[in-house]
Simulated scan of single mutants.
Amino acid sequence: MRRGRSERGVLLPPQEMISKLEKTANAGNFYEAQQMYKSIAARYAAAERYGECLDILQSGASVQLKNGQVTCGAELGLLLVENLTKGKFPVNDENLDRIRKIYKDFPRIPVPQNFGENDDVEKLSETIGAAKARVESCSSFLKAALKWSADNGGQKGGSPELHLMLAEYTCSESPELDMAKVSLHLIRGNSPERFASTLVNFMDKCYPGEDDLAIARAVLFRAALSIGGQTRKFSSCNVYTPLVILPRSMPIPPGPLTQAGSSPKNIKERRGSIKREGAHVRTPSRHVRNSI
C-alpha cells in the first residue's frame, strides 16, 4: 500500500506540469518538451488519472501547434484521443471541446494557386510539401477522433461536427483538393449550407466540364447515405439539398444538370415517363452504399 501511495505522490498537480512544459516548448526546446509531455502523460494514465492526462496532452498539442510544430502537435492530439478511448470517455460537449481547441490551433497557411514563371521551384515544392504534411497530420488526428466518437456513444458514422472540421481543413489547406473525399465528410456533416458553398467554390475552380460531375456526385452521395440511414441533419431535405439551399447571391454555374429542364420536378416527371415505357430505374446496390 505504501508503494502505491509513493507512486501517486510523485505526480505533481497537472497545472504545475503544464506551466513547466509550456515554458520549455516556448523556449524552443520542442523535442525535449515533446518527450516530457509523452512520458508525464503516460504516468498519469498509468495511475488511471485520465482527466489530468487529457489536460496535459491537450495543452501540449496546442502549444506545439502554436509554435508551428505540426507533427509534434498532431502526435499529442492522437495520444489524447487514445486516452479518451482508454478512459471510456463519452461523446459530449466537454470532450468534443478538447478536440475543437486542438483543431483550431492547426496552422492555416493558404497555398498559392497560381505560380509565376519566375517563382522558385524549390521553394514552391517545399511549400506544397509542408501543406500536404499539415493536411495529413490534421486528418490523422480527426479520423482518430471520428472513430472514438463512433465507438463511444456518438452517431454510427462519427460526430457530424468532426466530419465538417475534416472537410473544412482539407478544403482550405490541401494543394490538390480531392472533392470526392471531401464530399463524403461534408455530406456527413451538420451544415448543408457549408456543403453547398464548398461545392460552388469548387465548381468555380475545377476543369471545364467537371462542374456537372461535382453536382451529380454530391446528389448521389446524399441519396446513397439517405438510403443507408446515415444522415440525420439532412433528413428534412431531399437529395437536391446541395442545390436548393444556395443563397441567391451565389449562382450555380450553368450546365446540363443545372438547367431548368433538370429541376427535381421535371426529373420526377421524366422518371414517370420512363417507367411507363417499361424501363427500370435502379437504386444504388448495398455494395455501392457500403463503399461510400
Rank of each mutant, 00 (worst) to 15 (best):
R188G: 01
E126G: 04
N118A: 12
L142Q: 02
L213W: 12
C138D: 05
I187P: 04
L186R: 08
A216V: 14
R194G: 02
N152G: 04
A196M: 11
Q230H: 15
A214N: 07
P256I: 15
G158S: 09
L220N: 14
E122K: 12
E173G: 00
T231A: 03
K123N: 03
L164W: 11
R248Q: 00
T231R: 10
G157E: 14
I252D: 13
I215D: 04
A223S: 12
D119L: 04
M179Y: 09
G229L: 09
E168W: 01
S172V: 08
N152F: 14
L166V: 03
T127L: 12
G153E: 09
A214H: 12
R232E: 14
R222I: 11
S235K: 13
W148N: 02
F141D: 03
E136T: 00
D151A: 07
D211V: 06
L243S: 07
L142V: 00
N152L: 08
K156F: 14
P175I: 05
A144Q: 10
E193H: 08
L257M: 07
G154Y: 11
G189Q: 07
G261F: 14
S236F: 10
T241W: 13
C237R: 15
E161H: 06
S140P: 00
I215T: 06
E168G: 02
N118V: 04
K123T: 15
G228H: 13
F141I: 09
A144H: 11
T127W: 04
P253I: 15
C206S: 10
A260K: 07
E126C: 01
R248V: 05
D178C: 02
V182Q: 05
L220A: 15
S235W: 04
A223N: 09
S159C: 10
A218R: 08
S149T: 12
C237Y: 15
V239H: 14
T198E: 04
G255Y: 13
A196F: 08
D212Y: 08
H163F: 05
T258M: 01
D120Q: 02
A214E: 12
D204I: 07
R232I: 12
T198G: 00
A145I: 04
N118L: 05
G157I: 02
Q259P: 02
V182E: 05
T231I: 15
S149L: 03
E126M: 06
G154W: 11
V244T: 14
R248S: 01
K265L: 08
S139R: 13
Q259N: 08
D120H: 06
V239M: 11
R188W: 03
N190F: 07
S262E: 13
D211T: 15
D119R: 09
A218L: 04
